[in-house]
C-alpha cells in the first residue's frame, strides 16, 4: 500500500504535494490517502480529492480527518456523500448534522449535464446575492457576473470533459491571511483535459511547441475551443473579464501545467509547467472583498 499524506491545510497550492507523491505510481497501484492530520480544506481541496479518486483504476483508501471540527465540516460540505462511492473510507465519519452557518455557498455538487448547471445556478442565486453585496461589498450587478462565471466554469465539464466532475463554493473571512472576506469557487474534473480536448477537434494551433501549458494558454487566454463555431470559447473570456473587473483570481490546471490570471493583491505565478500530472481540468476562482471603497 502506498501512503499519500494529505497536507494539514489543503488548497489549490498544497494539493500539488498530493500529486507529487502520486506521480511515481502507476494508475492501478493501491493507494491510501491519509488525511488524519488535515485540519482545513478549501473547495478546491475537497473537489480535487474526489477527482483524484476518479482517476485511479483501483479504488483508493481514504483516512478521514481526525479532528472533529474538520470531519464534521467535510460532512456538511457533502464530501463524504460522494467519497463513500469513490474511496474505501477509513476512520470516523460524522453523520451530517443540522445545517449551521458555515459560509458554504454550495456544497460539493456533482456536475455532468446541462441540467446540473441549471440546478447549481438556481441554488446559489439568493445566497450569493447576500454574500456578494454584504460580505464582499461589491455592487449588486456583480451577482449576475458571479452566476455567469459559475455557470461557464461548470459548463466546461459538460461540454469538454467527457465525464462528470464536481463544483463547490465557499465564503471565507480571511482576516488573518488577507484581511478581508473572499469567495472561492472550485470546479474540478478528471476528464480528457484541455490539451486532448483541443486535439480532438483538430484545434491545435500550428506551432512547433505543443504541450499542456500551450494548450491551456490557447484555451484560457486566447479563447480557443475544440468546436470551430465562431461563438465558442467565450466562456473563459467572460470569466476573465468578470474577475478583472472585481479584482478576482482565476487559475486553471490541466495535465502538467497551470495558468493563472493573477490580480495585484496576489503573488502567484502566471504559468507553471512540468507539474506532477493530473488528468482533467481543475479550475479555481477567488473573488475578494472590495476594500478600496
Amino acid at each position: 500500500m502506498n501512503v499519500i499524506t494529505v497536507p494539514s491545510s489543503l488548497d489549490d497550492q498544497s494539493f500539488e504535494q498530493v500529486l507529487e507523491q502520486l506521480a511515481p505510481l502507476a494508475p492501478d497501484d493501491r493507494i491510501l490517502l491519509d488525511a488524519r492530520n488535515t485540519t482545513w480544506a478549501s473547495p478546491y481541496g475537497l473537489t480535487a480529492l474526489l477527482t483524484l479518486a476518479q482517476t485511479r483504476l483501483v479504488k483508493p483508501q481514504f483516512y478521514a480527518p481526525e479532528k472533529d471540527d474538520t470531519s464534521s465540516y467535510w460532512s456538511r460540505a457533502k464530501f463524504f456523500d460522494y467519497a463513500a462511492d469513490l474511496f474505501e473510507v477509513l476512520g470516523r465519519v460524522p453523520a451530517r448534522g443540522p445545517e449551521r452557518e458555515s459560509g458554504t455557498l454550495l456544497e460539493v455538487t456533482p456536475v455532468s449535464k446541462s441540467d446540473d448547471v441549471h440546478k447549481v445556478v438556481e441554488r446559489i442565486q439568493a445566497k450569493a446575492s447576500q454574500i456578494i453585496t454584504n460580505n464582499l461589498h461589491l455592487e449588486s450587478r456583480a451577482v449576475m457576473g458571479f452566476a455567469m462565471a459559475l455557470s461557464e466554469a461548470c459548463q466546461n465539464i459538460v461540454e469538454h470533459a467527457g465525464r462528470g466532475g464536481w463544483v463547490a463554493v465557499q465564503n471565507y473571512n480571511y482576516r488573518r491571511r488577507m484581511g478581508r472576506h473572499v469567495v472561492q469557487i472550485a470546479v474540478c474534473d478528471a476528464g480528457v483535459g484541455i490539451r486532448q480536448s483541443l486535439e480532438s477537434g483538430n484545434r491545435r494551433p500550428l506551432t512547433d511547441r505543443w504541450d499542456d501549458g500551450v494548450a491551456l494558454e490557447t484555451a484560457v487566454i486566447q479563447g480557443m475551443s475544440r468546436f470551430p463555431d465562431f461563438g465558442r470559447g467565450q466562456g473563459f473570456k467572460g470569466i476573465r473579464g468578470y474577475l478583472r473587473k472585481w479584482k478576482g483570481k482565476l487559475a486553471v490546471r490541466s495535465g502538467t501545467a497551470r495558468v493563472a490570471d493573477v490580480p495585484p493583491w496576489d503573488d502567484d505565478v502566471v504559468r507553471r509547467d512540468h507539474l506532477a500530472p493530473m488528468p482533467g481540468t481543475q479550475l479555481f476562482i477567488m473573488i475578494p472583498e472590495e476594500v478600496d471603497r
Binding site: S114, H118, V121, E122, S151, Q155, V158
Partner: peptide, 11 residues
C-alpha cells in the same frame, strides 16, 4: 422545467 435562468449552451 420551471427554470428562470438562460444558462448553458444546450438550453
Amino acid at each position: 422545467q420551471d427554470y428562470g435562468n438562460l444558462v448553458t449552451r444546450d438550453t
